[in-house]
Amino acid sequence: MPKKHQAQNSPVIEYRNVSVIRAGAPILDHIDLHIGKGERVAYLGRSGAGKTTALKVINGLIAASSGEVVIDGTSIAQHALPALRRRIGYVMQQPALFPHRTVLDNIATVPRLLEWPEERVRSESQRLLEQLELPAKTFGARFPRMLSGGQQQRVAIARALIASPEILLCDEPFSALDPLIRAELQTLFRSATEARAATTLVFVTHDVREALRIAERVIVFDEGRVVVDTPSSAFMKHEHPLVRRFVEA
């Protein structure tokens, strides 16, 4: 299922000597990274390690202080951000659904920005909701407030996936959920994203098991730097002390 390497040659996301400095302190410290098309990457690290910042420079929610982030061969600075962001899905810890819009209208956000025909919006969102086991018939017309946290997060995932983004960015999407629901959502998330082989996934987490479950490559951040970059399969045996601490925790 995970289609690997053909990827590596054509980087979709490239960090070129990227630093982010806030209040004189580096949050990201000279990062160089290549992420290939269709790769599934986890950014792992303790809180404050810089992984979320590394994620947010990809869709320009945070601007690099120096260096550049290159998407599809073009520097972020040269992209029109709204247009670029419509090609990049984004899911964070909070579902952050639009409280004044129904489930279906939430999911339709990006397609409507892209001016899809309504017919296509409807059929795609229904299909996606089925896939995430949240039947549109029952849930489509509900408002976010009427859903549980896990259900809201599924809607957030559907909202991020509907326009088949080239890149999907996830910032600890499951860490606010209780363990049973988290495991269930991880499984649903895996199958929904693996069905979109062309989508490059960057997934921020502080949970090793989650990283290994979802990604095929793990990048460990510490104090704003990349300290380990390894295939998931080799992670458990990696000798870096931080990895050992993660594995033994």
């Binding site: 929610l61 984004y90 004044h100 920005l113």
Partner: peptide, 27 residues
Amino acid sequence: VDPHVREAATAMGMTDRQLLWNVELPL
């Protein structure tokens, strides 16, 4: 307006004006 909701709207590619009319003012 919940800053996370604003962040989600921006991250989905709404322009400033769309953010205002589609999200902030209705809320």
